[in-house]
Write a protein that binds this DNA or RNA. Structure first.
Ligand SMILES: [Zn+2]
Ligand SMILES: [Zn+2]
Ligand SMILES: [Zn+2]
Ligand SMILES: [Zn+2]
Lengths: 141, 141
DNA sequence: ATTGATAATGATATTTTATATCAATAATAC
DNA sequence: GTATTATTGATATAAAATATCATTATCAAT
């Protein structure tokens, strides 16, 4: 994911921030990581290889990645924030298994359109939304 | 909202818990309060009249009200949990103004049905969902 | 390459919301 | 009334994220 990396370091340059090896490692680890990763998981992944990286820096870098549109925060259930790559990926919603925690990505254009319509019918300008359906996945049924 | 109160104290009785004046006051204050109230707001409402009520008890009582189906927790944005009466109210979703924080309650049966269909198409048994549309309300546009 | 200005880092402290602890108190059954 | 035990409220703790701050690293200008 070369481009995504570039988006980040471009943003860093434009904002007159600095290119650091920590940022580089964090961004690359994020791009390699499983989708829907937490800051803590990403931190512990990095820590294995690079014991000198601090968790505060991981949080700070994730925030920067959010600012430049690389990722989305998702807060499912009542746990920690999860982060998922947004760049060049379509918007989607999530089915969340209440037994095993599995996240299934789904998208229904009809629902998307109806949501917009619903908002506008209420004199409301929709900017983004979050739809999470909780239930049981195949394995946990 | 006499019945709602009864639901609660019935639950208390069935679980061999006790009828206390704190619980009575908290439940009644909740039923009188604005929709989508936080524990802290409810606590401060109560505190004005009843300085001897503790916030831990407010939290505990809200949790009990949740257990017996009287209320729903809603976690909008990244703030505190809000609580809303569920008993004898239809399920609904929320439009949330990103400028003033206003919550608008909405419901679209077509969306509800499509969500169920979407879940089942993914071999998933939906139990409940959460749909929040963030944007700008009339006043804030 | 050296230097100076200042952004970034990481250890730690703090914040925020919710929950756990625990001695004192109050509710219920007998 | 008494015994039993759930409840309370003050306080401590937990959990996640953010703020603080001395030290270090980056980078542009020389
Ligand atoms: Zn599952
Ligand atoms: Zn996703
Ligand atoms: Zn508004
Ligand atoms: Zn509502």
């Amino acid at each position: 994911m070369k481009e995504a990396r570039d988006i980040f370091f471009n943003y860093v340059k434009v904002k007159n921030l600095r290119y650091t090896r920590q940022r580089e490692k964090i961004v690359e680890a994020f791009l390699r990581a499983d989708r829907h990763i937490t800051a803590e998981e990403l931190y512990s992944n990095l820590k294995k290889v690079d014991p000198e990286i601090g968790s505060a820096t991981v949080h700070r870098t994730l925030k920067l990645m959010g600012e430049c549109g690389l990722l989305d925060e998702i807060k499912v259930g009542s746990g920690k924030t999860r982060y998922e790559l947004k760049y060049k990926r379509e918007h989607h919603d999530h089915l969340i298994c209440i037994n095993c925690g599995r996240l299934i990505e789904v998208r229904d254009d009809k629902i998307e359109r109806l949501q917009d319509k619903l908002a506008r019918a209420n004199d409301f300008v929709p900017k983004w939304h979050r739809l999470e359906i909780y239930g049981l996945c195949t394995k946990c049924r």
